[in-house]
Design a protein around this nucleic acid. Sequence first.
DNA 1: GGCTAAGCGAGACGGTACGTCTAGTCTTGGG
DNA 2: CCCAAGACTAGACGTACCGTCTCGCTTAGCC
Lengths: 215, 215, 215, 215
Amino acid sequence: MPKETNGNAQTRLRPSEIQRRVLDAAFESVLRIGFRAVTVESISAETGIAKTSIYRRWPNKAAMVMDAFVFRIGPCIGFPPSDDHIGSIRKQMLALAKAFRGPAGTMIKALLGEAQFDVELAEAFRKHWLLPRREIAIAAVHVAINSGELRADVDVQVTLDALYGGLYYRLLTGSGPLSDTYVEGLFSHVIEGLRAVPRTPVSRAVEITQRKRSR
Amino acid sequence: MPKETNGNAQTRLRPSEIQRRVLDAAFESVLRIGFRAVTVESISAETGIAKTSIYRRWPNKAAMVMDAFVFRIGPCIGFPPSDDHIGSIRKQMLALAKAFRGPAGTMIKALLGEAQFDVELAEAFRKHWLLPRREIAIAAVHVAINSGELRADVDVQVTLDALYGGLYYRLLTGSGPLSDTYVEGLFSHVIEGLRAVPRTPVSRAVEITQRKRSR
Amino acid sequence: MPKETNGNAQTRLRPSEIQRRVLDAAFESVLRIGFRAVTVESISAETGIAKTSIYRRWPNKAAMVMDAFVFRIGPCIGFPPSDDHIGSIRKQMLALAKAFRGPAGTMIKALLGEAQFDVELAEAFRKHWLLPRREIAIAAVHVAINSGELRADVDVQVTLDALYGGLYYRLLTGSGPLSDTYVEGLFSHVIEGLRAVPRTPVSRAVEITQRKRSR
Amino acid sequence: MPKETNGNAQTRLRPSEIQRRVLDAAFESVLRIGFRAVTVESISAETGIAKTSIYRRWPNKAAMVMDAFVFRIGPCIGFPPSDDHIGSIRKQMLALAKAFRGPAGTMIKALLGEAQFDVELAEAFRKHWLLPRREIAIAAVHVAINSGELRADVDVQVTLDALYGGLYYRLLTGSGPLSDTYVEGLFSHVIEGLRAVPRTPVSRAVEITQRKRSR
DNA sequence: GGCTAAGCGAGACGGTACGTCTAGTCTTGGG
DNA sequence: CCCAAGACTAGACGTACCGTCTCGCTTAGCC
C-alpha cells in the first residue's frame, strides 16, 4: 500500500502542498486587498505556513506573487488559431484585452508596477510573461510576411510594440477602457497600413469588425 | 529700504524656499539612489527641513516626488514646431524618447510604477504629465486630418495610443532600446498607413529619415 | 462716552479677559478630558486665543493649569468655624474630603502628579494650596493646645501630617474611598490619643459623630 | 557536554538577558536624568536593544519603569522582625522612610506621579508595591490587637493610612524631611492613643526613642 | 531500523521608516 | 506695541513589515 498523502490531519504538509497553498493565498490576496497590502506575514498568518518556510522558497513578496501569477495565469492565455495569420494576432489581442479586464490585469498592473523598482522581478516578468507571448506573435507576423499578407519591409518588433504597447499603455495609465472596440481600432489602424495589398480606410475596417461581432 | 529676502543666514526659510529645497533634494535623490530608497526622513535629514514641514505640504513620498517631477521636468518637454503637422508629432516623439533616456525617464518609470498602487498618484500623473501632452498631440492630429494630411476616418485616440504606447511599453518593460531609429520606425509604421495619400513602404520612410539625420 | 467693553466683536480682548478665558477653558478641559489630553494648542484652538499669547503669560501647561486651579478653586475651600478648635479641624477635613471627591480632587491629583516632575509647579502648589490651609490648621492646633484641649507636648506638624496625609494618600493612590465615615475615623483615631483628657475608645467617637450626622 | 549559556559573544541575547538589560538601564536612567527625560528610544539606544523588542514586552515607558522598579526594589524592603508587633510596624516605617530618601524614593515619586494620569500604572503600583506591604502591616496590627497591645476597636485601615499617609505626603509634597525623628514622632503620635494601656505623653515617647537611638 | 539531516511551526529579534503628535519658538501682518 | 494666525524645528511616539535567527519537533532518507 502506497503511503499516499497520509490521512492524518496532523501530518506535516508536503513541500508541493506548501507551495500550492502559499501561491493560492498570494493570488487571492492580491486580488482581494491589493499587492501593497499583501505581506509575507499576512500570507503566513492566512495559510498557517511559517514565514521561514516562505522565505526559504522566495526571496521576497514580489517573487512570490510573480510565481503565483505564473502558477495561476501563465498558461491560460494562449494564442487562438485563425485562418489568416494576421487575424490570429487580432484574436490574441482581443484575448489579452479580456484578460486585462479581469484578475490577470490586476496582477499585471501590480507586477509591472513593482518591476519598476526591482530588476529581478522585471527580468522574471519579461521571461515568464512577455517573451513567451511575444515569440508566438513574432512567428505569426513572420508567417504573414512570408505568405504575402504583410509587406516584406515590415519591422516585426516595431509592429508588435505599436499593437501591444497601446494595450499596456491603457492598462497602466488607466487613460481609457480596454474594450473590444478599442482593440479592433488599434489593430486595424496599425495593420491596415502594413498590408501588402492596401485596404480601404481604417474606420471602414472597424465598421466591418463591429458588424461581424454583432452578428 | 525694503526688507528683502534678508541676508541674515540665521533667518527662517521662506515657504517657497522650503518647497524648492525639498523638491530639489527629492529629485536628485530619486535619480541618485532610486525612488524606493528615498525617504521622507532622508529628505528631511538632507535638507535640514523638519519632517513635519514636509508632511504639511505633501501627504506622502509619492506626492512629493510627483511634485518634484512636475517642478523640474514638467514644463521642459515642449512640442517642437514643424512645417507639417504630422512632422511635429514625429518630432515630439523623438523629444519624448530622448527625455525617456535621461532623468525624466527615471522619474516616469518610478512614478508610473508607484501609480499602480496609488490612485491619487495615478490621477496626478495623468493630470500633470499625460494629459497636457496628449491634448497638444490631439490638436496636431486634428489639424493634420483637416488639412488633408491624414485620412478623415482616423481615430485620434487610437492613433496616439499606438504611437506613444510603444514608447511607454519599452520604457516600462525594458524590452528594447528607445533609440531615435526605433522612434522613427514606430512613427512611420503607424502613420504611413493613415495618410490620405499613401506613401511608399514603411521601411523606405525609415531610410529617408535616417538619411536626413545623417546629414 | 466711555469706551466700555466695546460691542464691536472685532475688538481686541483686554488682557484680563484673555486670562479669564484661558483659565476657564483650561479648568473645564482638565475636568472634561484630563490633564494629559489638555494642550496649550487645544486651549488656544478652543478659546481662539493665540498660542503666543498664552506662552506670554505662562511658561507651560502646568503653570497655566495651576493658575486655573487657584483662580477657580483656591479661595473656595475655607476653614469652617466651630465652637471647639479641634472640631474646626475635623470640619475642615470633612470639607477637604468633599472637595477631593469633586472637581478640586481631579485638579489636585493632576497637579500633584505633574509636580513630581516639575519643581516649579511643586513649589507653586505648596505655596498656593498646601501652605495657606496648613497655616490655618497650625493656628487651630496651637489654640487647642493653649486652651488645654490637646496635650502640651503635641507636635503640630506631625499631627497634621497624620490627619491630612491619610486624605492625600487615598486621593493619590486610590486605595479607598474618601467618605465622611473614613474622615471621621481618621480624625478620631489620631486626635483622641492626643487629647489632654483622654476620651473613650476611638470607635465610640466614631459612633458619636455618626449619630450627630444622622440627626 | 551541555550547551550552556554559550560563550560566543556574537550570539543573540536570551530573552531574560534582554529584560534584565532594559530594566537595569531604565532604572539607572530614571535616577540619572529623571522619569520625564527617559525615553523608550533612549533606552533602546543605550542598551542596543531594538525599540520593537521593548515594545513587545511593555506597552509604554511607564509600564517598563514600573517593572524596573519592582525588579530592583520590590523585594528589597522587607518587614523587619521585632519582639512586639507594634514595634515591627515602627521598624518598617523607619525602613520605608530610609528607602524614600534613596533611589526607591525617586522611583516612587515618579511612578506615583505618573500614575495620576495612567490608570493601568496606578493599578500596577497598588498591586506590586502598596498592597504587599499593606497586607503585612494589616496582619501585624491584627496580631497587636489580638495580643492586647492595641485596643480592640482600632480600625486597621485608618490606622495604617494615618501612619503611612504622613510618609507619602512628605515624599510627594516635599513639605518636610523624611528623617527618622519625623518617623518616630508620626508613629508615637498615632500609636500611643491607640494602645490598650495608655502611655505617657507622646513627646515623652519621642524622647525615649531618640534616647535609644543615640546610644 | 536506527540515525542524521533537513524541513517545519512558532515567534522573537534588530532594523528602518512610517505618519502623528506636542512642545515651544519665531515671523508676519493687522489694528 | 500687542495681538491672531500659523509655520517652523525638534524629537518621541507607537506601529508595521522586513528579512534573519533560534528553538524544538517531525519526518525522510541513507546507511
